[in-house]
Computed example of a mutant assay.
Amino acid sequence: MTNPQGAQTWVQTGPLTFNRSLTGADRVYEQVSEVPGLTIHHPGFWEVSYHARTGLTAAGGVTTAVFKNGNLIDGSEAIRASAEGQGTIGQRFMHTFVRGDIVTLHVYRFGGGGIYILSNTDGRTAVMAHWVRETWQSQ
């Protein structure tokens, strides 16, 4: 395994503060533009993790996922359904990227109204990625 010299092996969003109501169509992903996209600086196998603080003011739910270059990464989805309140959902997974890939957080709502995603000092929404190795090798 070669350590990428001169390349970032860890990328993540900084501390974010926002509150975004989800008003798009039911079960249609929208990019969370308040969470900056992460640029992959070195090709290879990366560990990606994210957490998203969500809120519901009525019965319904929210699904989050990570996209690569505008396309869903299968297996990155997380779901939260509840009557009311806030909670944090997310995933941790491995994925192969090439240099320059852009990783973004997306979300959709289903059912009910009053569904939102937020980030502040009481709980953050963030995306992180850490380079693991050049290629995937099954054991």
Rank of each mutant, 00 (worst) to 15 (best):
L56V: 12
Q8G: 05
S82K: 07
G37S: 13
T64L: 15
G75P: 12
S119N: 07
L72C: 07
N120R: 00
A52E: 15
R109T: 08
N71C: 11
G114C: 06
V35P: 03
G60W: 05
S138D: 12
E30V: 15
L118R: 05
G87A: 10
V98H: 04
Q31R: 08
G87S: 10
H95T: 11
E84M: 07
F110C: 01
T64N: 08
Q8R: 03
T64I: 11
I102L: 08
A58W: 07
G123D: 07
F18Y: 08
G75C: 08
Y108L: 10
L16G: 06
R124G: 10
H106L: 06
A52T: 15
M1G: 13
T2F: 13
E84C: 04
T13D: 07
R133N: 14
N69Q: 08
Q31W: 04
H130T: 11
V28Y: 05
V11E: 03
K68C: 14
E47R: 05
W131M: 03
I89C: 05
T54N: 09
T2M: 14
D74Y: 06
G60L: 04
L38H: 01
V127G: 00
H51F: 12
H106S: 08
R80G: 11
A59D: 15
G87P: 02
G123W: 02
A126P: 00
R80H: 15
T2Y: 11
T63R: 10
G6L: 06
F110Q: 01
T63P: 01
